[in-house]
Nucleic acid binder design. Structure first.
Length: 588
RNA sequence: GGGGUCGUAGCUCAGUUUGGUUAGAGCGCCAGUCUGUCACACUGGAGGCCGCGAGUUCGAGCCUCGUCGGCCCCGCCA
């Protein structure tokens, strides 16, 4: 007999099951041997059930049970009965199993950390022993939510006539965008497949094929440095629709999020979501993914100080920059040290320094006050709604940098003052729209697509491509939840001529464009519907739904910040033979 | 590519400021006692390459340099 198969799970039994003879299978959570009484907590994915042995009348069982340690896998047979002392903290807390027989299925060494919810163990140890870490309920429940998201995706998009189509993982390397993960071809030595950064071109070609509505839950791969919300492989809910306009994608996506929040959190999400232009988002919140759960807006005082005697301000404005202010409400009590910390943060984003001004007991306190006229200060106070006890933080720089710096400070202030904590249970859904089509890359001295090269310009801006491409806007949109970018998409170019024009703008010669994207240009010749779509970051959505701060908590087998898999040791060296077969040689 | 921070018992950490006897604590573990525990309790015990390698020094957990690894951030992420 290997084991007796379970009749129930460790989370399912209730008082109605009393007197039933049941068999449970699971892991031993703890053994509490009171001498005259032994309790064993048995755990599986569904919960924990208490087993009990009375040594006085069950001496053989009691003797055998002495071998049982934490994390042993056992089967346990016994009768369900009411507890003398119920435990109101767990769902099975009213009952227990009076053990009649049990068997050890698998012994376990002492694990390096306890399998409990609130664990202080370092990330390094937990990742090395991921198979143990994943036993913890607090981690497992993230994957239950993740599974729920999969189900809603399938249901919702199926109900809306979407077709799931799988696209290749071995594809052609495309030079734009992120660094590719390359896979060497054995048959064609010296040639490589690339793992997809996204199935972008495949889904567009599916539209040209007439699939009309496509969806896929799909892995994407980008060989870039990691962050707490970024892994080299991640999952997207990728979708694309034909014969639609921007608002069709937007409302389809809103319906999806409303459904997700309803089914998973039982929260009613108001649609349509708030919309904001990229320019407004940057100007008002210093971010293209503003967290709108709280206020703290930026103010532009460029006009006010353009003729100021304070040269730092006036020179910035006259050279095309801006002066912006964040009113950190009630932060005048910040010490010099705290302000220095803010300055350090600002410097990370390229600030040379941060000017500040605070009002304490009605008195202006500021290192730059002596450079500003009294009426200038009064005007600044009025514009920023600055009152006693407030702290103003100034950034004077080129527009995007000045905004970004204060945007970072805005978040830091919100963290430091407890604002973030106070809005933890709120959700703010936002569309950021009207992105620039292109951004100028100073390094290469040419334009790069802000979204991707297949994004359609605004209809009214098409002529700008010839004259002033830098100010053309794109039919692109990002969806932002609580300050996290959880998705982005666009209406695509469906005209071969405009697509060619776009490649040219990006500095690709006709030959280069043909070599890299010839198949797309070719496909565009044969009848292409207007189409567009969006890619939603599934991992980040699960993070938001579970309230976790780190993407590793929602990916079963994640990499460390330096891209290592500590459990299995990837990436690893390979046999010389394997390299030879691929025609590869390692050089130092 | 750059910056910050951390690495001491199975786990979490103190000790590093100012180098100096035998490196501590809590939890866990082991043994014993215990009939209603569920963070069981109580008594006792075991447990250390102070990440690794050089160096300075009479002497290094502590100072210096290098290196490996965790976490966070900037750049990067169409």
């Amino acid at each position: 007999m290997n084991f007796l198969k379970r009749t129930d799970t460790c989370g399912s039994l209730r008082k109605e099951d009393c007197d039933k003879i049941v068999i449970l299978n699971g892991w031993v959570q703890t053994v509490r041997d009171l001498g005259g009484l032994i309790f064993i907590d048995l755990r599986d994915r569904y919960g924990i059930t208490q087993l009990v042995i009375h040594p006085e009348t069950q001496s053989e069982l009691a003797e055998r049970s002495k071998e049982i340690k934490s994390e042993f896998v056992i089967w346990a047979k016994g009768k369900v009965r009411m507890r003398e002392n119920p435990n109101p903290n767990i769902p099975t807390g009213l009952i227990e199993i009076l053990l009649e027989d049990f068997g050890i299925i698998s012994k376990a060494e002492l694990p390096p950390f306890e399998i409990v919810d609130d664990i202080g163990t370092s990330e390094e140890i937990k990742l090395k022993y991921r198979f143990l870490d994943l036993r913890r309920h607090s981690l497992q429940k993230h994957f239950i939510v993740r599974n729920d998201v999969y189900q809603v995706v399938h249901k919702y998009f199926n109900e809306n006539n979407f077709i799931e189509v799988e696209t290749p993982f071995l594809m052609k390397s495309t030079p734009e965008g992120a660094r590719d993960y390359l896979v060497p071809s054995r048959i064609y030595k010296g040639r490589f497949y690339a793992l997809p950064q996204s199935p972008q071109l495949y889904k567009q070609i599916l539209m040209m094929a007439g699939f009309d509505r496509y969806v896929q839950i799909v892995k994407c791969f980008r060989d870039e440095d990691l962050r707490s919300d970024r892994q080299p492989e991640f999952t997207q809910v990728d979708l694309e629709m034909s014969f639609i306009e921007r608002d069709d994608i937007i409302s389809m996506t809103e319906g999806f999020f409303a459904r997700l929040w309803k089914e998973i959190l039982d929260v009613d999400v108001l649609t349509p979501f708030l919309r904001m232009s990229y320019n407004d988002a940057m100007n008002r919140f210093g971010s293209d993914k503003p967290d709108l759960r709280f206020e703290l807006e930026l103010t532009d005082i460029s006009d006010l100080v353009k003729n100021s005697e304070f040269k730092v301000f006036s020179d910035t404005v006259s050279s095309g920059g801006v002066v912006k202010v964040l009113n950190a409400k009630g932060c005048a009590e910040f010490s010099r040290k705290k302000i220095d910390e803010l300055t350090e943060l600002a410097k990370k984003y390229g600030a040379k320094g941060i000017a500040w001004l605070k009002i304490v007991d009605g008195e202006i306190n500021s290192p730059i006050a002596k450079f500003l006229k009294e009426d200038e200060i009064e005007e600044i106070k009025k514009l920023t709604n600055c009152e006693n006890g407030d702290l103003l933080l100034f950034s004077s720089d080129k527009w995007s940098r000045a905004c970004t710096i204060l945007g970072a400070l805005r978040l830091e202030i919100a963290r430091k003052t407890g604002i973030i904590d106070s809005v933890k249970n709120k959700f703010s859904f936002l569309w950021v729209l009207d992105f620039p089509l292109l951004e100028f890359d100073g390094e290469s001295g040419r334009y790069a697509a802000m979204h991707h090269p297949f994004t359609s310009p605004m209809d009214e801006d098409i002529n700008l491509l010839e004259t002033e491409p830098g100010i053309a806007k794109a039919k692109a949109y990002d969806i932002v939840i609580n300050g996290a970018e959880v998705g982005g998409g666009s209406i695509r170019i469906h005209s071969r001529e405009i697509q060619e024009k776009m490649f040219k703008l990006l500095g690709l010669s006709k030959e280069e464009a043909d070599a890299k994207f010839g198949f797309l240009l070719e496909a565009l010749k044969y009848g292409c519907p207007p189409h567009g779509g969006i890619a939603l970051g599934l991992d980040r959505i699960v993070m938001t739904l579970t309230g976790t701060e780190n993407i590793r908590d929602v990916i079963a087998f994640p990499k460390t910040t330096s891209g290592l898999s500590l459990m299995d040791g990837a990436p690893s060296n390979v046999d010389e033979m394997q390299l030879k077969e691929l025609g590869l040689k390692i050089i130092e």
